[in-house]
Design a protein around this nucleic acid. Sequence first.
DNA 1: ACCTGAACACCGTTCAAGT
DNA 2: ACCTGAACACCGTTCAAGT
Lengths: 218, 218
Amino acid sequence: MRMPPRTGLTERAVAAKALELIDADGLDGLSIRKLATELGVSPMTLYTYFPDRDALLEAAAQLLYAEIEAPPDDTLGPQDTVRHIMRSVRRVILRHPNTVTLVAKYPPRTLDALAFVEAGYRSFSRAGITPLDTARAYRALAVYSIGTAEIEINRYFAHHPAANLPAKSLDTPTLQRHLPNVTKVGPLLDQLDDTAEFDYGLDLILDGFTQRRGHGDR
Amino acid sequence: MRMPPRTGLTERAVAAKALELIDADGLDGLSIRKLATELGVSPMTLYTYFPDRDALLEAAAQLLYAEIEAPPDDTLGPQDTVRHIMRSVRRVILRHPNTVTLVAKYPPRTLDALAFVEAGYRSFSRAGITPLDTARAYRALAVYSIGTAEIEINRYFAHHPAANLPAKSLDTPTLQRHLPNVTKVGPLLDQLDDTAEFDYGLDLILDGFTQRRGHGDR
DNA sequence: ACCTGAACACCGTTCAAGT
DNA sequence: ACCTGAACACCGTTCAAGT
């Protein structure tokens, strides 16, 4: 039968501390043992709250999703609503960079985590956009936010050859001979402004959807 | 001084076996010890070929990138070239689903791995597209392919509430009351066709770039 | 139900040594 | 340079037991 915790812990408090440790030490830096020590309990106690490490990580992701802000009221149209939400998504993930693989793996599930999704859907509904078009837009936006987060947080282009030659990369003459276009374009990759590119790509998606919606082009 | 290997191993052979084991057992299933056993050497031998586990994973990613196919000749325009390459990227990653986090983390670096990038850049160059616009397009396409891969391989929408209610999710009445739009749209998410959505989004990006290129809208 | 310590079956990597 | 076995400092999780 259900017993009150003797340690004062809750699922939420455990997940919140996990998120904190992930922020500080990375995903690999979070161990059940370390988290337990931090919370002042034995490692096995945590299994009272979560069945395994994966479930704990999933719960941490839900707390992160709850930080995403929707527009304060329902006055904005779908485009501005999406822009507002997507920028918040980006800021939240950049605030918790070590969680990016969790965001890619676990979708929002709790009421708080789904609040931003509901707000986005609601703005689409108000604009008369069909549920199917709404689903397709959400999918594209999920792809975009997760792809962007991975690229930005892993500093994907900072390591790109000819963008910023790391020690173990090819030497420039070899690169120049075999891959002249990579040599030419590469250095520009790391100079792009992440925020500007994010807004640019987002506009591209929004405009594309606006133009094609309901035109049966699928 | 440089000595020939006494085990017949090469960096490439080690990385290839690593990729094989990742395909079979997942990223977490690949341990240095297991890989060594599989190759018939002691675990520490592998440190002759790679400084650490990360370097080994990076090398496996390079072998994967080398599988991506560029168009056979230079007759296609940039749009068709990109479509050809991007579809190959998707197929290759879907063939090696357990590597998705590696693809998100390590950009192509070796000559073989960069072949598809060079082919893409070359088609842009032929069409008179500036290196800067080329870099911006490559970034958007990298975001798109990585985001798509994560969503598809993690079956992101299969776990989405109201798309396919998992055991621990909210019950439907609660969902219906607090998140009516999520309830309505959710079930459609998992019904979208991955291949169709991929092509749809890719066209959207390509059209957007074509329309805006050089219009100074940044 | 909640909490624990001990044990099991693993890890990646350092170290000292052998060829 | 190439290869090894032993050891170090960890893991997540199972188990048996205590409240």
